[in-house]
């Protein structure tokens, strides 16, 4: 009986995991590539070119800034328009990947 339950719960786990398997294992990396055109590869901006370096910034701060761009709380020329293109989950992934950059 115990064996059956284990087998059943494994099946549930497999079922729960399968939609995730169809998703993008490199999603955070790929999303950050959207930022690189202005903010440098992996968020490492060209020095003294007037663009913010995002690599290595604390994740919470990056998420907060994006949220402020989206709400309009933080004035911007273009980032308020770009930030609205990404979901909370995407912003979380982007911020996490950038924060982990050395």
């Amino acid at each position: 009986m115990k064996r059956l339950i284990t087998a059943a719960s494994t099946a549930v786990l497999v079922l729960a995991a399968s939609p995730a398997a169809a998703e993008d294992a490199n999603l955070a990396r790929n999303l950050v590539a959207n930022c690189a055109n202005c903010h440098g590869t992996n968020g490492k901006a060209v020095p003294n070119a007037g663009m913010a370096t995002l690599a290595g910034q604390p994740k919470e701060g990056l998420v907060q800034r994006m949220n402020e761009f989206r709400s309009g709380a933080r004035p911007a020329t273009v980032m308020h328009q770009i930030a609205k293109g990404y979901s909370d989950a995407q912003i979380d992934l982007i911020a996490g990947y950038l924060a982990a950059q050395k």
């Binding site: 690189a36 202005c38 440098g40 060209v46 273009v78």
Partner: peptide
């Protein structure tokens, strides 16, 4: 003028990217 500085900054960053 602020966006002029961003335009130049964009060019430098995308060329490096």
């Amino acid at each position: 003028a602020l966006e002029a500085s961003f335009a130049v900054g964009w060019a430098k960053n995308i060329w490096a990217d």
